[in-house]
Write a protein that binds this DNA or RNA. Structure first.
Length: 764
RNA sequence: UCGGGGAUCGUCUAAUGGCAGGACCGCAGACUCUGAAUCUGCUCAUCUAGGUUCGAAUCCUAGUCCCCGAACCA
């Protein structure tokens, strides 16, 4: 198993493997072929395929093609291309949801026969209306109680094709009052007389996502079905479908993670499609687009994208990732791989008056300093430098050319500026002299110029198109409110004619270079022609100079204000209030509350213990076994409540009386607190007799102070560095020692005594 | 309003009752034939309030804020 980043999903998988719930890991990446994949998908691809790789399992690529009106074969191809380009390979053939249509149909008939589905003839509007809303339950369809035979016949009729679209649907029969609206008799099949890119006209009914997806997963033997957070509510329905159509081995489980949110771009397929269709960008692979195709054409590498996925991790927090992290990964990767070349984007002519007319010097310069591989770079009397590299009023730390000052032209000669040529006040050229002794960039006398700049020889330079790309939007969250289009960055694409050194201009389409001191570039694989490359700027170099002169623009505030609806909403009814009302309506609870208060419990404890009658019964039984309400309520409320995780008391492995006996052991000083916690969690999970378990688990309290002293000494000698640090003043390390001692004594020693012994030893 | 999720440096993410760690960003310095890269150092966080515990980011209670869900979409 290769090393990997841990996240909550690897925790789950580790636990599943350890418990034997699964014997291998099978994941899947299930895009709908209705658009191009984007960088958010790249995160999901890296996750799913990465998990399969790390656990030596499998990952399927599956087209979720259940809606023929939106999907297209072109997208099927682009998706495969993008996944491969990212560096992943799927298990076996590409899968298609449409390949399972026959099995899904049979499964639907089974649901009907089981009484779990029915054909409904209500209209779209009626169905929506009768579904109710978050506050109102839905109402049953008049067709809900049709017989199995009738449903079977109607469903067959749906398939047979005689019914126009919208005539009727197949629905799951669950509960129209369910608090999860998705569970209110969800639609399973609808009629759509549409041509499917794969099944053609074989079908006129198509399954809905919530019905189809779990079946696809189960049929493929998927163990961990990973999707994004917005499907959390759908999981209940996913499980419903699987539970009624099993048994499955393995039984797939759905888990959700946070989709990628990235600053200064949009990620929804709808918005991306809109940009393409309205021709606001030049197609899906426009280098400004966050699509995989766009990033690829821009010159971002698969390695950089995979690094990025690793860097941002996987969790359930809604997050907005700083696009600077992507830029960091791109720079880091290109820094390693890109050869260096020179081009001038905004040329300024420099005439070298002491260079012989018509003579050219051919310099040999390494593609990458310190590495093998060189090219020839011509040098002559007229040199082009970057306009920004000359200043006639240089600031204090200026490391470039200025009047009377000398700089090194990278890999060539030292030059000095002697004269500035102007026209109407504007600088139109420079005259200067070259140090003929400095060929190769070293002077005989060992002097060092202030700086080094890039350049090209004017007579040999090659004209080439340079495309400068920038963030697509001017704000971090373009779709935070209202229309995202007004936030488009008009300067996201800037086209320049640059002058490039001849050797670099020969490079074929699809090559990366670093144009020195400018940025990383990629010769456009589509528009480049032999000898006429078009260069895309992938990303600029980090520029600590550009941002120094007071240009620190503050990071814009992120949008996180309350929605209008929330502002006016009445606060949720307090839970304490809810319990008080329940007590008022339930004499049994009210009586218990009075009794507990009379017993000396504080009002909060009495309140919490009287939320449900089963708790009261449990607590009363404990009270009979051990009449100490104070410690009983503390252990119940603080520990047992956490351990049972909402499980009904009736389902845990021990009863109230046992709980009473358990607390009595603690009060009788037979058990320390940590040992008690260990014992309690054992009791909740497996049950048993507390007294017997103390012996079995070795939890009995150790009163032997010699044993404590011995353990303390052992721990201190095993942690010499920490001991020294503690003595030097790091008091917080006491907890580490206590923990280690307790662990050694299996939690059976009194923590207070351990603490005191430790202090004596450390300070004495 | 009902149901489901989530809150840890500016950002992303760890810590599974025991030293709040890493990365990005930022700042400072070193080095430099790229104001790049590299190297060194620094700044910076547990949503709030109570409780349990020797010890709480973690367990309990109450609250606050954010996100998702009511398509014959996925």
């Amino acid at each position: 198993m290769t090393t990997r980043r841990a996240n909550f999903l690897t925790d789950i998988i580790d636990a599943d493997l350890a418990a034997g719930r699964v014997v291998r890991v099978a994941t899947r990446f299930p895009p709908e072929p209705n658009g191009y994949l984007h960088v958010g998908h790249a995160k999901s691809i890296c996750l799913n395929f990465g998990l399969a790789r790390d656990y030596e399992g499998t990952c399927n690529l599956r087209m979720d093609d259940t809606n023929p009106v939106k999907e297209d074969i072109d997208y099927v191809h682009s998706i495969q291309k993008d996944v491969k380009w990212l560096g992943f390979d799927w298990s076996g053939e590409v899968r298609f949801a449409s390949d399972y249509f026959e099995q899904m149909y049979a499964a639907a008939e089974r649901l009907i026969r089981q009484g779990d589905a029915y054909v409904d003839h209500q209209s779209v509007d009626e169905i929506r209306l009768n579904r109710g809303d978050f506050n109102r339950p839905g109402v049953n369809s008049p067709n809900r109680d049709r017989s199995v035979a009738e449903n079977l016949e109607l469903f067959q009729a749906m398939r047979d094709g005689g019914l126009p679209d919208g005539t009727c649907v197949l629905r799951g029969k669950i509960d129209m009052a369910h608090p999860n609206v998705l569970m209110r008799d969800p639609l399973l099949y609808r009629i759509r007389h549409a041509h499917h890119h794969r099944t053609g006209d074989a079908w006129c009914i198509y399954p809905m996502y919530d019905y189809a997806h779990p079946i696809e997963d189960a049929l493929e033997g998927i163990t961990h079905s990973i999707c994004t957070l917005e499907f959390e509510s759908n999981r209940e329905l996913y499980d419903w479908v699987l539970d009624r159509l099993g048994p499955w081995n393995p039984r797939p489980r759905q888990y959700e993670f946070a989709r990628l949110g990235l600053g200064y771009t949009v990620m929804s397929k709808r918005k991306l499609l809109q940009l393409v269709e309205e021709k606001r960008v030049h197609g899906w692979d426009d280098p400004r687009m966050p699509t995989i195709a766009g990033l690829r054409r821009r010159g971002v590498t698969p390695e950089a994208l995979r690094d990025f996925a690793d860097l941002i991790g996987v969790a359930k927090n809604n997050s907005l990732v700083d696009i600077g992290k992507l830029e960091f990964c791109v720079r880091q990767d290109l820094e390693k791989r890109a050869p260096r070349a020179m081009a001038v984007l905004q040329p300024l002519s420099l005439q070298l008056t002491n260079w012989p007319l018509g003579q050219t010097d051919l310099l040999t310069i390494a593609w990458k300093t310190g590495e093998a591989g060189t090219r020839q770079v011509p040098f002559g009397r007229e040199i082009l430098i970057e306009r920004d590299d000359f200043s006639d009023a240089p600031p204090r730390d200026w490391k470039r050319l200025s009047l009377g000052k000398e700089v090194r032209l990278f890999g060539a000669y030292f030059v000095r500026c002697d004269e500035v040529l102007r026209e109407n006040g504007e600088i139109i050229g420079l005259r200067g002299t070259v140090d003929l002794e400095s060929r190769g960039g070293e002077s005989k006398d060992g002097r060092q110029p202030a700086g080094t700049i890039h350049w090209v020889d004017a007579t040999h330079a090659v004209d080439c198109e340079i495309r400068l790309y920038d963030r697509l939007f001017t704000v971090e969250q373009p779709d935070a409110d209202g229309d995202f289009l007004p936030h488009m960055n008009p300067d996201a694409l800037q086209v320049l004619q640059g002058q490039m050194e001849p050797a670099a201009a020969e490079l074929p389409g699809g090559t990366h270079v670093q144009l020195m001191r400018v940025g990383y570039f990629f010769s456009d694989p589509v528009d480049s022609e032999p000898g006429k490359p078009v260069w895309n700027r992938v990303i600029g170099l980090r520029d600590t100079w550009a941002k120094t002169p007071g240009r620190t623009e503050g990071r814009p505030e992120r949008k996180k204000e309350q929605s209008e609806a929330k502002k006016d909403a009445v606060p949720k009814k307090a839970r304490a209030q809810w319990r008080a009302e329940k007590r008022a309506a339930t004499p049994e609870l009210a009586a218990a509350y009075g009794r507990y208060v009379a017993l000396g419990l504080d009002a909060d404890a009495a309140d919490l213990l009287t939320e449900e009658t089963e708790v009261v019964a449990f607590f009363d039984a404990a009270l009979r076994a051990h009449p100490n309400p104070g410690s009983l309520s503390r252990w119940f409320l603080n520990d047992l409540e956490g351990l049972r995780k909402g499980q009904p008391l009736a389902e845990i492995a021990f009863d109230g009386a046992t709980f009473g006996h358990f607390v009595a052991l603690l009060d009788g000083d037979r058990l320390t607190v940590p040992a008690g916690k260990q014992l309690l969690s054992h009791l909740v999970a497996k049950g048993g007799d507390p007294v017997a378990l103390i012996g079995e688990l070795g939890l009995g309290k150790v009163d032997d102070s010699d044993a404590v002293v011995a353990a303390v000494d052992a721990v201190l000698t095993s942690l010499p560095a920490e001991t020294a640090r503690f003595r030097a003043g790091e008091q917080r390390l006491l907890g580490v020692f206590i923990g280690a001692v307790l662990k050694q004594l299996r939690g059976s020693a009194d923590a207070g005594a351990v603490r005191q012994t430790l202090l004596d030893r450390l300070n004495g």
